[in-house]
Design a protein around this nucleic acid. Structure first.
Length: 421
RNA sequence: GGCGCCGUAGCCAAGGGGUAAGGCAAGGGUCUGCAAAACCCUGACCGCUGGUUCGAGUCCAGCCGGCGCCUCCA
């Protein structure tokens, strides 16, 4: 399979480190608000990648984090006068329910940031020992000037980073930093904020450290694939690379970096700050999960696209056609041979996940089945293939309900988020 | 400003040197008591200007236009 790796800016043949297993990490949500269509796009896109890898026989080990303590959640907690943990648990449960409805394969590990505080402290200590970080008045910072490779993912020239950052009104005047570009690994407790004990005093983890820590902890120092939304490239993923490669001393931290494009609505990027959000859950009151998955799959993961009802109507019609094909009665005339369609489907997916082309193959196969059924031909083998290929897209066809394994896997994660709410 | 993506029919698009897939919409038709569905038929100065070439959506250069990201974000 070929995948576009933004690290090398080229489509490269993908081979995992181990011949039969793939390690993948996808940046998760900050649970302080609801799951919108952009989240659904990202997580179903990586779900398709993971399901396709499994379809090809790989054993996939998948980690997704939950950023349950950060500036946004704490701000939200102050705004609404609620405990930050209650907010995090509530919105994580909400996210999980949406993932279940969409039949998204659960990650094998779904840790909160606060589940790995001690491991994060160890990462920060490793960075201090290696000389890439410094402690300053109870906080610890990554010293970007100490690592010349900072910028290799986003390719922003070093000289540009600081002026750009300053232009954007960010406050480079934290007196505790040596360099305004340095980012925090551990921040000393602010009044009223939650804190954990550390060698540098009470505080909480910085913005990027959880992903570096979890990735190494659950998957190893070098992983095959790291995914997330394209808006995370800089500084989040850039900083993750710096932390991980400096802390473990091993390169690369990630072999393939994959990013999903942003979903647009009303002509602008769908974003919390612009207020043009479309909630996955609201769409699911009108459209079937299969239709929504086909709708999302009809857009290539690297192409930005505009949300609109017309394409959803098309997707719903397609979902119905696939469902009809999966259940059409067969006869005894010569069978419909699904082999060529299966090969075309695989060819499309091998080409950097050309999901649009792959869905077109599903539709063509469904039409062959419907035609064959009408002509009294045997369609069982073709229907088995349709189900098999549809499963790569997480389609349930006539099953109606999400896959029981999907529900059970997420339910197990869900239990850990229901205690405080 | 930097980095990146992209301009192909009304819309979504495939194709990445050999003479323009497909889908939606629109119009016409078949079928139907009417309608729907289904099926058939109908559409392109490939952003502009140069260059390379026997031949350029396709490669190169330059321009024009759109979009994304740039320590809030999937």
């Amino acid at each position: 399979m070929k995948l576009y790796n933004i690290l090398t800016q080229s489509v490269e043949p993908f081979e995992p480190q181990e011949p039969e297993a793939v390690t993948i990490y996808v940046c998760g949500i900050t649970p302080y608000d609801t799951t919108h269509l952009g989240h659904a796009f990202t997580y179903t896109a990586f779900d398709i990648l993971i399901r396709y890898l499994e379809f090809q026989g790989y054993d996939v080990r998948y980690v997704q984090n939950v950023t349950d303590v950060d500036d946004d959640i704490l701000r939200k907690a102050r705004e609404v006068g609620e405990n930050w943990m209650v907010i995090g648990d509530r919105w994580t449960a909400h996210f999980i329910q949406d993932m279940q409805t969409l039949n998204v394969r659960p990650p094998d590990y779904f840790p909160r940031a606060t589940d790995v505080i001690s491991q994060m402290i160890e990462t920060v200590e490793a960075l201090l020992d290696a000389g890439y970080a410094y402690e300053s008045d109870g906080s610890v910072y990554f010293h970007t000037a100490a690592w010349p490779e900072y910028g290799k993912l986003s390719r922003i020239p070093r000289a540009e980073m600081l002026p750009i950052a300053n232009e954007h009104g960010n406050v480079p005047d934290d007196p505790k930093k040596r360099d305004p570009l340095d980012f925090v690994l551990w921040q000393a407790q602010a009044p009223g904020e939650p804190a954990w004990d550390s060698p540098w005093g009470a505080g909480r983890p910085g913005w990027h450290i959880e992903c570096s820590t979890m990735s190494a902890h659950y998957l190893g120092a070098t992983i095959d694939i790291h995914g997330g939304g394209a808006d995370l490239v800089f500084p989040h993923h850039e900083s993750e690379i710096a932390q991980s490669e400096c802390a473990t001393g091993q390169q690369p931290f990630v072999r393939f970096w994959l990013h999903t494009a942003m979903v647009h609505h009303e002509g602008e990027k769908m974003s919390k700050s612009l207020g043009n959000l479309v909630m996955a859950r609201d769409l699911l009151t009108t459209w079937s999960p299969d239709a929504l998955r086909l709708y999302l799959g009809c857009h290539h993961y690297r192409d930005a696209w505009e949300h609109g009802d017309e394409a959803l109507e098309h997707a719903e019609a397609l979902a119905q056609k696939l469902r009809r094909a999966a259940t059409a009665a067969g006869g005894h005339s010569p069978p419909v041979d699904p082999t060529p369609k299966r090969a075309t489907f695989v060819e499309a997916m091998e080409r950097d996940l050309d999901t649009r082309a792959a869905i077109a193959v599903l539709e063509a196969l469904a039409e062959e089945i419907l035609d064959g059924s009408e002509a009294g031909r045997e369609v069982k083998a073709a229907q088995d293939t349709l189900r098999n290929l549809g499963d790569v897209f997480g389609l349930r066809l006539d099953a109606g309900e999400p896959d029981p394994r999907v529900v059970a896997g997420w339910d197990e994660h869900l239990r850990r988020f229901e205690k405080s709410s």
